[in-house]
């Protein structure tokens, strides 16, 4: 959570400096964010590959448990698509791409802004941040209505880190492994699904 706030602070600081033209042209004229994005992707992959816990959990690769991230992918895609039909200036396809961020806002917003421009990038950022915040706030209620997978479903990719404590508290200790499993799978899928959705 602290990390999320730090990330947001950097974003806001950047926006503030940019808006008030307080930054040397050097920063605006040189776009190093593309190579940096590749570096980030490398490091995200490195994190997954070197995470022994993640490996052990992925080894319990069980068709039945796989249904949970599958339902989240399908549900997010459908929900995003339907909303996209009604939202002006955002196509249903782009809306779907944004919902495939599954709350992983740093990655999805950067990828989307690089390919589709900053406007959609900002929507992706705000949308996926609100998914995380929504989960942190509403998991206690959602669990009562939608059962013990609710926090995992709502949290998406964040179920493996930032929203895991809330899920643990309201869905029970036995859901921690499931949350982690689903969160890892969704996190890995984010770059694939987002890139696919905005480039087709």
């Amino acid at each position: 959570m602290i990390n999320s706030l730090k990330i947001l602070a950097f974003f806001v600081l950047g926006a503030f400096l940019g808006y008030n033209s307080l930054l040397p042209d050097f920063f605006l004229k040189n776009d190093f964010s593309m190579p940096v994005l590749y570096l980030l992707m490398f490091l995200v992959g490195f994190g997954v590959g070197s995470n022994k816990k993640a490996f052990d959990i992925l080894k319990m690769f069980n068709i039945k448990f796989l249904l949970i991230p599958l339902a989240i992918v399908t549900g997010s895609g459908l929900g995003g698509f339907i909303m996209g039909i009604f939202i002006s200036e955002v196509s249903a396809k782009d809306s779907m791409a944004i919902s495939f961020g599954f709350g992983y806002y740093s990655l999805s917003s950067v990828i989307i802004s690089k390919i589709k421009g900053e406007t959609l990038g900002v929507i992706a950022l705000l949308s996926n941040i609100s998914r995380e915040i929504f989960t942190l706030v509403f998991t206690p209620i959602l669990v009562k209505i939608f059962g013990k997978f609710a926090g995992i479903a709502s949290g998406g990719a964040t179920a493996m880190d930032t929203t895991l404590p809330v899920i643990k508290k309201y869905s029970g200790e036995d859901m921690v492994i499931v949350a982690f499993f689903s969160g890892i799978i969704l996190s890995i899928l984010v770059p694939f699904l987002v890139t696919f959705m905005i480039t087709i």
Binding site: G75, T135, A153
Partner: peptide, 22 residues
């Protein structure tokens, strides 16, 4: 707009995951 998209994504996920659960 961002908020509407996330609400759609969350509700869709909740419903389908609930069905999987049931």
């Amino acid at each position: 707009k961002a908020f509407l998209i996330s609400i759609g994504a969350v509700i869709g996920s909740l419903i389908l995951t609930f069905l999987v659960y049931l």
